[in-house]
Each structure stands twice: as structure tokens, then as C-alpha cells.
């Protein structure tokens, strides 16, 4: 059997149900989910990290997420809300918030208290301390959290094809229905590539956005030249 024939057949790339369209759908779900999750999780995580109130909730939600079966969440919400875009989207947002929240919280929380003390002592007001000191220093962990969330969403959006969502997962589910293994393989390869490329792009973005001062500088001595952790929680995957 030619496993890869389906993937490289140009006929499968165009059209409303072709690979290109599904890829755009998949990216669309991911972008929409991330947008909502970031809008909720970064302000919330920054506030919790800044004030120190409710930290256990953040840690608890990130840990609980790991055990929560994504398929179970998807089918449950599809049952309650319906199988359009909304049900899966709610599930995706629920899964994307904890990593971003945990990353932001940990990032803000981990800023050296002496640095914050110095910022306040020099006459920065609360907003300036948060925007100019705490968030820039938290950025490596925030982006780490976003990376985890993106992987989680790309992965779960694939599974969401089971509850009739579009995207690349369709090839796996539709292929399965008609015993078309090459189509399933094509879908799987595309999803895997998408995840890898998305992660690389975000890694590049991380390099670009994070101040070089927060990275370890090999070969130069310095008492605090400790490498910043790349992700808040590299293990926060459950899909």
C-alpha cells in the first residue's frame, strides 16, 4: 500500500475540503482560541502573580488539566452546547487558559523581589512596575506557557474533528470512516508538521522578544547568570 500517495495527490490540496482549506481552518481555530485565552489569562495571571492572591488556584488548574481527558471534555461540551464551533471552542479555551495563566503567574511571581523593590524605591508607580519591570521579566515564562497552550490546542483541535469540527483532524476521522488509511496518515503528518512548525515559530519569537539580559551568557562570569527556564510547564499536555 502506498501510504503517502494521498498526501501528495494535488487533487486533495484544493477545494473547500482540501488540505489547504483544512489547514486554514485549523490555524483559525488555534488563533481564535489563543486570542481568547491570552486575553483572559495574561491579565489574570499578572494580577494573581502581582498580588500573590489565589496562586494555589493557578497551580491547581494547571495540574488538574493534565489529568482531564480532553476527549471527555469535548464530547461533554458538544452534548451540552452542540456540535457547531461553539462547543469545541469552549473546550479548547478551557484547555488553553491554564498553561498561559500558570506561565504568567509563575513569571511575575519569580521576578526577583529586590528588582521590584528597587523599581518602587526609584519612584515607579504600580502600572509602570507591572508593564516595565514585571511583565518583561516574566516574558520567557509567559511565552513558554503560550507554547504549551498552542501545542495543546493544535492537538485537541485535531481530536475535535470527532465532534464534527473542521480542520486537519477531519482527514483522520473521515479516513477512518471509509477505511482510507493513507488519508488518515496524510492528516496525521500534516498535524504533526503543523505542531512542530508552530512550536519552532514561537521559539523564534521567544528569542526575538525576550531581552538578551534574561538569557544565560556562556563564557561570561556573573553571579546571577542562570539560564531562564524555557517553558513554565513543558509537561502540560493532555491531548
Amino acid at each position: 500500500m502506498n501510504y503517502f500517495g494521498w498526501l501528495f495527490d494535488p487533487a486533495h490540496w484544493s477545494g473547500p475540503q482540501g488540505i489547504a482549506a483544512r489547514l486554514v481552518e485549523h490555524l483559525g481555530y488555534t488563533a481564535l482560541t489563543l486570542l481568547i485565552a491570552i486575553a483572559v489569562a495574561i491579565p489574570l495571571g499578572a494580577w494573581i502573580g502581582h498580588s500573590g492572591r489565589g496562586g494555589f488556584l493557578v497551580v491547581g488548574s494547571a495540574n488538574g488539566l493534565r489529568a482531564l481527558p480532553t476527549l471527555g471534555l469535548l464530547v461533554l461540551l458538544a452534548g451540552f452546547i452542540g456540535i457547531g464551533l461553539l462547543g469545541p471552542l469552549v473546550a479548547l479555551v478551557i484547555l488553553a487558559i491554564p498553561p498561559v495563566l500558570a506561565g504568567t503567574y509563575a513569571g511575575v511571581r519569580n521576578v526577583d523581589p529586590a528588582v521590584v523593590d528597587a523599581a518602587v524605591g526609584m519612584g515607579m508607580r504600580g502600572r509602570a512596575v507591572l508593564l516595565r519591570v514585571e511583565l518583561p521579566n516574566a516574558l520567557p515564562l509567559i511565552i513558554g506557557g503560550i507554547r504549551s497552550a498552542v501545542l495543546q490546542v493544535i492537538s485537541t483541535a485535531t481530536i475535535a474533528a470527532y465532534v464534527a469540527l473542521g480542520g486537519l483532524g477531519r482527514f483522520i476521522i473521515d479516513g477512518l470512516a471509509v477505511r482510507d488509511y493513507p488519508q488518515m496518515i496524510a492528516g496525521s503528518i500534516l498535524v504533526a508538521l503543523l505542531a512542530i512548525v508552530a512550536d519552532l515559530v514561537l521559539a523564534g519569537l521567544q528569542k526575538l522578544l525576550v531581552s538578551p539580559g534574561l538569557r544565560a551568557v556562556p563564557g561570561r562570569r556573573g553571579p546571577r547568570a542562570v539560564p531562564a527556564p524555557k517553558t513554565a510547564d513543558p509537561a502540560a499536555r493532555a491531548a
Binding site: 529586590a114 528588582v115 523593590d117 528597587a118 524605591g121 519591570v133 516574558l139 539580559g213
Partner: peptide, 18 residues
């Protein structure tokens, strides 16, 4: 007030990102 008073602390408190 603080902008008119110099402040030096033990751990230096330098901004690592700047």
C-alpha cells in the same frame, strides 16, 4: 518623593532585562 531620593539595596536590584 522617591524620584528625588537615591536608593541602593543589598541585592543591587538591577533590572535584568535592561
Amino acid at each position: 518623593l522617591r524620584r528625588g531620593i537615591g536608593y541602593v539595596i543589598q541585592q543591587s536590584g538591577l533590572f535584568p532585562h535592561r
